[in-house]
């Protein structure tokens, strides 16, 4: 038997391997009953909102598309974070628990490739859910005679997806720390409560009560990705931030037309930060 001499190969991430893992993740998501439960819940509620939003449009502050979008923002800020967080939380921890992660990493695949493939696949699955829901709602609005503000509507759909991806990143970050999938899911639900309810009512309420300066109030709002999404979406179809009171007026006065893009960029930044932290933790982290 001749001796084996191996040749060194690049340890850098290869896009084709990331794509292969992402493809598997998408296929698995489409097979998962949880994915379809979320998709049907989001699409169903979006369609319901679009159907009930239009008849009141003559008395509403916004146009028909805007009114549908406002309803969808309220829906998205609750459902989309939960969807992203739970999907992310069960990803790495679930694979680690079942042995699938060990199997994957026993191939000539780096941890970066495994992580990015999983992330890209799940982000694509979330895109199908979010854009499917918004697409159906938009279609119903158009069929029922609404047509204005289509650009803002698309922008809110993209913001919703960015929020979903941000929460996916937070979920995956939780997943890299948790020992089991059920522990990861528990922490993910806690994080959802923190972002969705405690962040909105607690932090904003405390900031108002303790007379935080107006710029501080705005900063407190965008530190929470769910709140940043809500403000960016409101700006997208109404152009104002009256919900923030003086801080909203301060923001509009200070940043003018740039405010919409600045808030959009904030949400986009929130889509990147947690996944970079999760990637760092997973690739530098210890044992599988």
């Amino acid at each position: 038997m001749t001796s084996l001499q191996l040749e060194a190969i690049s340890e850098r991430a290869q896009p084709s391997l990331i794509a292969a893992i992402a493809k598997k993740e998408i296929a698995e998501a489409f097979r998962s009953k949880w994915f379809w439960m979320w998709t049907l819940a989001f699409a169903g509620l979006a369609v319901f909102m679009a159907t009930v939003a239009l008849p009141g449009s003559q008395v509403a502050e916004f146009g028909s598309f805007g009114r549908t979008a406002a309803s969808l923002v309220a829906l998205a800020q609750i459902i989309v974070p939960l969807m992203g967080l739970t999907l992310g939380a069960s990803s790495i921890a679930g694979q680690r628990e079942s042995g699938a992660l060990r199997f994957l990493l026993s191939h000539p695949v780096s941890r970066s490739e495994a992580f990015l493939g999983t992330y890209v696949g799940l982000a694509a699955a979330l895109a199908a859910t979010v854009f499917g829901g918004f697409g159906l709602a938009g279609l119903i609005t158009v069929v029922q005679g609404g047509g204005a503000d289509a650009g803002s509507f698309v922008r809110i759909a993209v913001l919703s997806w960015l929020l979903a991806v941000s929460m996916l990143g937070f979920g995956m970050l939780v997943s890299t720390f948790a020992r089991t999938a059920s522990a990861a899911l528990g922490i993910a639900v806690f994080v959802w409560l923190l972002f969705t309810f405690v962040g909105d009512l607690g932090v904003m309420g405390s900031a108002l009560a303790t007379r935080v300066p107006t710029w501080g109030l705005l900063a407190t709002a965008v530190v929470n990705p769910v709140e940043a999404f809500r403000l960016a979406s409101l700006t997208a179809f109404s152009g104002s931030l009256d919900v923030l009171g003086p801080a909203g007026r301060y923001a509009v006065d200070t940043f003018g037309d740039q405010l919409g893009w600045m808030l959009f960029a904030t949400v986009a930044l929130w889509a990147v930060i947690p996944v970079v932290l999760a990637w760092f933790r997973f690739t530098r982290g210890g044992d599988v």
Partner: peptide, 15 residues
């Protein structure tokens, strides 16, 4: 493994 350090050349070794 095959002359390569497994910690440094994980992909080649697992290949």
């Amino acid at each position: 493994v095959g002359g390569l350090d497994a910690a440094e050349h994980g992909k080649a070794v697992r290949g």
